[in-house]
């Protein structure tokens, strides 16, 4: 390994990887929940409702667990991650009604997400450290994206 600390340096261990995988599963459940709210309340409420209950839940958890929420010295823009999340909902619902349909929209969205993550690691975007990506990571990404495409189009 050419990187100083070997696999550990690239890695970060199996625990964060397991968390990321499980959190992805949470997202699948979340999509199901929000779609159900949207069926009753419309597209705005599909996003408004989880932001309401999510804000309440996060406030409760931060209070109960005593997690740090103040962030002195952090640049102001770092507080605006929620704006980009809220805008995602609008772009997705616009694109899904086009000729792309839902499968195409989701597949392109996954590709966009992965490409940004790869580039952010490579160039150390937004105040986070640069990371060398291993060929194995790219192989994993290619396999996951190919499999996602098959599932999305196979479901039609």
């Amino acid at each position: 390994m050419e990187t100083g600390g070997g696999t550990e340096r690239r890695g970060g261990g199996w625990w964060p990887r397991t968390v990321a995988l499980l959190a992805g599963g949470c997202l699948a459940l979340m999509v199901l929940c929000n779609a159900e709210v949207g069926r009753q309340g419309g597209v705005l409420w599909a996003s408004l409702a989880p932001h309401l209950t999510g804000s309440a839940a996060a406030l409760l958890l931060v209070t109960l667990l005593g997690a740090r929420w103040r962030a002195p010295g952090v640049p102001r823009w770092a507080f605006l991650g929620g704006l980009s999340g809220a805008a995602t909902v609008m772009l997705t619902s616009l694109a899904a009604t086009s000729a792309l349909a839902l499968a195409g929209t989701l597949a392109l969205g996954l590709a966009g997400q992965a490409a940004f993550g790869r580039a952010a690691d490579r160039w150390g975007w937004l105040g986070l450290p640069r990371r060398n990506t291993a060929a194995r990571d790219d192989l994993g990404l290619a396999l996951v994206l190919a499999g996602s495409g098959l599932i999305l189009w196979g479901a039609r």
């Binding site: 931060v62 997690a67 605006l80 969205g109 490409a115 993550g117 937004l126 105040g127 986070l128």
Partner: peptide, 28 residues
């Protein structure tokens, strides 16, 4: 737009990771 929606998901995650560095993941 579809690609952009995916980019925004990752952008949001990156920005929140920066915020978490100065506070906590739950705070972010």
């Amino acid at each position: 737009m579809a690609l952009g929606a995916g980019v925004l998901v990752a952008l949001s995650r990156q920005v929140n990771a920066r915020l978490a560095l100065g506070s906590s993941a739950l705070g972010a």
